[in-house]
Amino acid sequence: MDIALERYSRQMRFYGVGEAGQKKLLDARVTLCGCGALGTVLANALVRAGVGRLRLIDRDFIETSNLQRQVLFDEHDVAEGLPKAEAAARKLGAINSAVHVEPVVVDIDRTNILELVGDADLILDGSDNFEVRYLINDAAVKLNKPWVYGGCIGSHGQTMTILPGETPCLRCVFEAAPAPGEAGTCETAGVLGPIVNVVASYQASEAIKILVGRRDKVSRELLYFDMWENEQRRIKVAPLLGKVDCPCCQHRRFEWLDGEHGSQTTSLCGRNAVQVSHRTASRLNFEDMARQLEHMGEVHYNRFLLKFNAENCEFTVFPDGRAIIKGTDDVDRARTLYAKYVGH
């Protein structure tokens, strides 16, 4: 056996993959949107399975409270203050150096998503909010690419695979996203590590089926699990295709891509924090910023982010001008604080 294939010998021995399937995996390109709880489990599974190229997108940095469930991170990563995508890429490189992992530290939005997923054979959802999921859905339907939705909170979660044109899309199943405060958050409900692994492992299995060319094996149901209440459900969603008057997959109106929905300011699930995005023409100069802010107290920065405290809030500023303001869930206050301390 080819030495490069030896590491996949057990996977190739499995009848559903074989050497032909493995070669398809090795040639495949995947874009993973989000590298938190679901995302780290997904990235780990795909890199070990030998997917050829993995683009890993995440806007966030690692905190101690992530370690309970975000399997690629450790205490050193927290101490270094690394962005999730960078730390994950480093860990994944040690797991399987043959996979080309491309970390991208940006906030996924309507201006960049088509480029981020344009060359992918498959899009995976490791995000924590519906704004990104509806953007993925619009992009996937528009570009006719398969994607796999996953979500979890508390002890329950759900997943569904979308094959544009063949199965209902996310908007067929969930017409709209819950407004802030309408659904539980990670803060009110918390999240158990095992449900993350269950949902992401189903997503990863679906990914492998699609990438080895076995769409016939893909689940056509919305799967639901609750690990604490011992519930599992397989919900038949296939008849929704064409039955609901879906703006996205029936009328090809891409409202999220077109900016009819979504915002530049996002309250972050369970974090008592708000993200403010502000596009800047050039990257922020952290050295200058740190000097301007030093009268307020300690300012820390590395090449990925700058941190300081003001008005009982913790600011984390990224080079593209984006900031996460922790200590408030009031988007208006966050906008004000942003303007006051970060500027523009």
Partner: peptide, 10 residues
């Protein structure tokens, strides 16, 4: 009957 909301976290 099951009432199931979309799950946002992850």
């Amino acid at each position: 009957l099951a009432i199931i909301p979309a799950v946002a976290g992850g």
